[in-house]
Design a protein around this nucleic acid. Structure first.
Lengths: 208, 208
DNA sequence: ATTTAAATTGGACCTTGGTCCAATACGGGT
DNA sequence: ACCCGTATTGGACCAAGGTCCAATTTAAAT
């Protein structure tokens, strides 16, 4: 069990389900870790590597649905595969619309579950990659002064320095200096890259 | 019945369902148009305004699911709301994952259906807006010569004219001319706009 | 064979972007 | 009182972008 290998977390109040899932998952080469309740899962320390969550819908205490909501609210984007013995269509529809990877009624086909797990892990790897990228960008953005950030937002509109200068009520010279520092701090050397970078973290142009 | 008002298409083999749905939909101010089969719907001329499709899953001939697949394959992005009397969870999950707006078992709550219809129409309005924008961009792109398009792809990387010239084995002068024509034909005047525009239609930088 | 579109390049010239050095001004914090 | 980060601006200077006019070459189309 190491953190570079994908881990599948299993939350189900039924011991036999936990056991069989754990065996199945380990047999295909993933780490598996089981929990008897949503609360127990929440108290686990955050996992660093790629992972996903197999979650029973109905459980005493916090239900699987509740846990999903909570994770969404707290922006913990771990991919979720629901399993359930007593689900209905509206419930499954809602779960998928809220971002669950799959929703499998018990008993389910092993191949289907494995397929869902692979999808979930792939999604998590992708999500993590984007997240890390965003954090790196954000870190550099935080080194900008307020004025520099303001200039950045105008620069990505494609306006000329003199136009930006007019908008901010300063001289073109000043914009040049701010702009130069923005590029230096963001560690790039073209407007094209700045535009893409701003897009990735959702920086909008000024309201005018 | 005019094309600026949203229209809801109803496809169901059950006459009573068609009738009640039509009444409900007209009562909230949308146009409604009914069809007794998927085939009948397909033979209708394309609708210009915002619309969505309420689709029975089980029907003689082409089923609702089949129709959904066909529309997806042919890139007809009309939002779909499934209704069904005999659906199961895997079916509903699959439908939503394939992009359906909702999946409602009969009998359904009127408010739920109306809510789903509003979502579907909103989605369609949004999709159409993006589509029109993409088409406008594509139209301008089609006026570019192969070489100009090639230069465009290098320009959006943020490279200098001299670097692009080296990549293409020509002089900087040549790149300047192509680049100028690209900006003129695309009707923009900054690299920033070019980058965003390229992003919208999914133009990738060169493979190097 | 003539025409046409595309690609290429040169020269001249102007605008814009970017940098280096330097200076002033203002507000916080030690 | 003094230092530091931030914002501002100027001068000088060079690199890069962009445009106008003009010319050549080549391949495709009529």
């Amino acid at each position: 069990m190491n953190e570079s290998n994908p881990t599948v977390f299993i939350v189900d109040d039924d011991a036999s389900v936990r056991k069989s899932l754990e065996r199945l998952i380990k047999s295909v080469g993933f780490n598996a870790e089981t929990f008897t309740s949503a609360e127990e899962f929440l108290s686990r320390k955050p996992y660093g590597g790629p992972s996903c969550l197999i979650l029973d819908v109905c459980m005493p205490g916090l239900s699987g649905i509740d846990l999903h909501k909570k994770l969404t609210r707290e922006e913990i984007p771990i991919p979720i595969i629901f399993i359930t013995g007593h689900g209905d269509i509206p419930m499954s529809v809602k779960a998928i619309k809220n971002g669950a990877v799959d929703f499998l009624p018990k008993p389910f086909d092993k191949k289907e579950l494995i397929s869902a797990i692979n999808q979930a892990i792939d999604r998590d790897v992708h999500t993590r990659k984007l997240l890390i990228e965003k954090e790196e960008i954000q870190h550099r953005l935080n080194t900008l002064t307020p004025r520099e950030f303001q200039v950045l937002r105008w620069v990505i509109t494609g306006m000329l320095n003199k136009q930006i200068a007019y908008e901010l009520g300063v001289t073109e010279k000043t914009i040049k200096v701010h702009r130069g520092r923005v590029m230096q701090k963001m560690q790039i050397d073209s407007v094209a890259e700045l535009v893409r970078l701003a897009q990735k973290v959702g920086i909008a142009p000024p309201n005018k």
